[in-house]
Design a protein around this nucleic acid. Structure first.
Lengths: 331, 331
DNA sequence: GCCCTCCCGGAAAGCGATTTCCAGTCTGTC
DNA sequence: GACAGACTGGAAATCGCTTTCCGGGAGGGC
């Protein structure tokens, strides 16, 4: 391994000078020495040892992103957005996938802290469990105390910079749009009871129906993924309109109906939430609430990077997108 | 920031003892001291500084994965498979996305080298450009010389451990299956001319047709992504059967036909390659060549981690999966 | 009872950078 | 021509941890 010392020796300069030339500094180095150092570095194929640099500088060029599942287009889009701004800032990205295990999430924060990463981005819904949340906050606190930066996409309950999608309002808007088509018997594929994103969307939807004086929807719990949607869709009974609290569940529901010969939208209308990119080519096209996912990832990271004392919360609103998976109730 | 020294002081032991207790070592530490150290660490909330550890040990607990695009299900699946084995081994993962820019790929390898990561996984097709490949090899050589491990998913032309999908053979099998349905006028959505994965699949397909004495297919070049497939599909002319060299292009092609009122499979048959998971719910179901993507990612990383002198090449064969997007030619 | 081993704890030398001082050289001004 | 001030180069301390080496105490075999 060729070290800075080797380069300095080869160039006939001191370690300090070599460091200033190759790894930047506020100080200037004369043109001739600079050239000698650069040439020596090129000849020997020198590469900075980031670990040493991080140790000496006390700050690294790495950020961390923690997501539930990279193969879920929702998280892929968030991560992609964040990675774009990381690349612009010349930062490297560590990605951790928790597969929805909160313990894993805590473990990742600890690891990222140990890496002294510059910022941590927590994507993915919080769960409604004070004990888990408490331990996560504790771990984050340790990291924040040592100068770390944290941003979160989702619920605002960690006292850190947060990009918070308007889950309640988006779901309520959707409910009103669907009710306007004449539907009265609704079902909600509501995901797991403890998952806050799921709960908020379900509550927003249900609340809006109540305000309109419509009957309560049938609320069906289940996993937050495609298969969860598939299974829950088998239990929607007499409902004429089904709201899945995220798109991947909605896609599962559509598959379920297709397999059972239930026509969408003729027999039942279906809507989702998120507007993941894979919907673009889905048949039938899914009605949903669009969130600017890549943007949200990018903004969250930008907030974390942009120093500032206060924990800020940026609300992101969703936009109802009507597509062919819903239709008006026959008169 | 609480350091190991703080812990040692609080526990009334030496730095060496504290290190042995908290960060592992071949040496034993007596039970009473061990307990004192552990308690002190817990009280102070000590977290190992990985940068310091990496520097001292000369080896890190991080691996790097370089992909083209995380939002592409193909790469997401590969990365997910690799991340699973990384998690099992207690390794952290750095992910770099190049967005198909070979310069970026080289830059990432350099950065990962600087990080002294334990292994690097290069996913994504090589390009047919000796200059770029040469520079990448040079950078990889530097990394390998300093004890790094590299594995590659794709073409075997970097002299490193490689998981090589049987692109030619898979495409040839597919061609034979499609020809058996009576098709004679084929088109290939062939992706960019210089991309080896695309070129191999196209060559395998074309070669098999030639062996069968069938006319040459219409070869249409374009980008390797969904939109590339969409656009190229507009130019397939009289072909009754279209092979897109990957699934995302095939999905784009299906969208193009749908938008133009061309029925699949009645008017034209369409097939892809990879069997990405999002196909599961696609309508019409796409005929394709299945690759075990997550497995491939996992095996590539396993190879890289499993020490050994020789660069091994593991061939992975694809399996033709016939689905409703193709049908026999009317008699 | 003695000697040899084995074990465990601690002191100290790295790992490869950064950065603070200090010293020497130039410039420019009066 | 002398002196302040601005730059540039280098020596050395430092970042936090690992690990070698050394020393002392305990245990076992004869």
């Amino acid at each position: 391994m060729v070290t800075l010392e080797d380069v300095a020796k080869q160039a006939g300069v001191s370690l300090a000078t070599a460091s200033r030339v190759l790894n930047g500094s506020t100080r200037q180095v004369g043109a001739s020495l600079r050239a000698r150092v650069e040439q020596a570095a090129a000849e020997l194929g020198y590469r900075t040892n980031f670990a040493a640099q991080t140790l000496a500088r006390g700050a690294s060029k790495v950020i961390g992103i923690v997501v539930h599942d990279l193969t879920d287009p929702y998280f892929a889009a968030l991560a992609d957005g964040a990675m774009r701004v990381a690349a612009e800032e010349g930062l490297l990205v560590m990605v951790g996938t928790t597969h929805r295990d909160p313990e894993q999430e805590i473990a990742y924060v600890a690891s990222l802290n140990a890496q002294r990463v510059r910022a941590v981005l927590l994507a993915g819904s919080r769960v409604d469990d004070p004990h888990v949340t408490g331990r996560l906050r504790e771990e984050l606190g340790r990291y924040l105390d040592s100068g770390g930066r944290v941003a979160c996409v989702g619920q605002d309950l960690l006292d850190v910079d947060t990009v918070a999608p308007a889950n309640r309002e988006g779901a309520a808007d959707l409910a009103r749009s669907l009710a306007a088509l004449g539907h009265t018997r609704f079902a909600v594929l509501a995901g797991p009871p403890g998952l806050l994103t799921a709960a908020d969307r379900c509550a927003g939807f249900t609340g809006a129906l109540a305000e309109l004086g419509l009957p309560e929807p049938l609320v069906l719990h289940g996993p937050f993924d495609r298969d969860g949607g598939y299974e829950a869709a088998a239990r929607t009974g007499e409902a004429t309109c089904v709201f899945a609290v995220n798109d991947v569940m909605a896609v599962g529901a559509l598959a379920s109906y297709r397999d059972r010969g239930v026509r969408v939208p003729q027999d039942v209308s279906v809507a989702g939430f998120d507007d993941i990119t894979t919907l673009r080519d889905h048949v039938p096209a899914l009605t949903t609430v669009r969130l600017p996912l890549a943007d949200m990832g990018a903004r969250a990271l930008a907030m974390a990077l942009d120093l500032g004392e206060e924990a800020r919360v940026e609300r992101v609103s969703g936009e109802v997108v009507m597509r062919e998976s819903v239709r008006a109730v026959e008169a």
